[in-house]
């Protein structure tokens, strides 16, 4: 058996601290490579516990307008898969502890080549992969390659995922289970706390992995609510909207962009550390590093 990865270790630490984690999403290379790297470098110090790095794609079908625009900005600034790996590698050179998860769509991954992709990702210090349009039915080739390279493949569980399908979705899952809180694309609707609590409880019946909740969390207050029921809250669209909000008329990063983004991440981090209500029932379970 290989040693527990950074993702398992991080969730074990969170359990020891008795708190919910914060997973932050930004697109690699948005709005440009240097600014993107500066943001990623600052995320952990601002309180992010897991870093999701989006692989830019021309046709992000599962994403709402904020992340679509983020992907377009990165591509317009010349981002390629090499940019994504470079940002991960530079981050890893400075931070050996915070897990990095790449999140993207099948085509850029296949275009790079599965084996080359997982090898390069591992060398860049990446810990996990989320490929949004790769359901378990099509995921075997990637799952096998990733496991060989020691990378966790993280699967999404949706409100539409029935009980009969849950085991199938989670059987090859690693890292954490990603519970999609809304029926929709990223950054659009907002889920009720009760619905999120039910969704998390449903996922826990089928896996011992930590459960992160995402897709509809836009404010520190919402993140605090999620912290009461899940092991981690994922925030993406609201962060990349902060990037969009601090561009000049030519679409270039203003001086205040990085501090504004990291300041917002800091607010989210504070919020998840002070949940709106104490963890209850199954959600208060502890994770051990030996798991």
């Amino acid at each position: 058996m290989s040693a527990p990865g950074r993702i398992a270790e991080q969730f074990a630490r969170l359990a020891d601290e008795g708190r919910c984690g914060l997973v932050t999403f930004v697109t690699a290379g948005d709005p440009d490579r240097a600014t993107s790297l500066a943001i990623v470098r600052g995320l952990a110090a601002s309180g992010a516990d897991v870093i999701e790095l989006g692989i830019p794609f021309s046709d992000p079908m599962a994403d709402g307008p904020a992340i679509q625009a983020s992907s377009s900005r990165a591509l317009a600034a010349g981002a390629t898969m090499a940019t994504t790996f470079a940002i991960a590698r530079d981050f890893r050179a400075e931070d050996s502890r915070t897990p990095v998860v790449l999140m993207g769509y099948s085509n850029p991954v296949y275009a790079f080549g599965l084996d080359a992709f997982v090898a390069e990702a591992r060398d860049a210090g990446v810990d996990g992969l989320i490929v949004v349009d790769l359901p378990p039915e099509e995921a075997d080739p990637l799952a096998v390659a990733a496991r060989t390279a020691g990378l966790d493949v993280i699967f999404l569980v949706a409100p539409t995922t029935g009980e009969d399908r849950m085991a199938r979705v989670l059987e090859n899952a690693g890292g954490f289970a990603y519970a999609v809180s809304i029926t929709g694309i990223t950054g659009t609707k907002r889920a009720s706390t009760d619905a999120v609590a039910r969704a998390v409880a449903r996922v826990r019946k089928h896996t011992s992995l930590p459960v992160a909740v995402g897709f509809g969390i836009k404010t520190p207050a919402q993140a605090a609510t999620i912290a009461g029921v899940a092991d981690a809250a994922v925030v993406g669209s609201a962060i990349v909207e902060r990037i969009a909000g601090h561009l000049d008329a030519h679409g270039r990063a203003g001086d205040d962009l990085v501090p504004a983004v990291l300041g917002f991440v800091g607010e989210l981090a504070t919020a998840v550390r002070a949940p709106a209500r104490p963890p209850t029932g199954a959600s208060a379970r502890k994770w051990s590093a030996s798991r």
């Binding site: 359901p135 039915e137 949706a158 539409t160």
Partner: peptide, 9 residues
């Protein structure tokens, strides 16, 4: 079938 899990069911 290369779609997000939300659509898969």
């Amino acid at each position: 079938r290369y779609v997000a899990e939300t659509l898969m069911p």
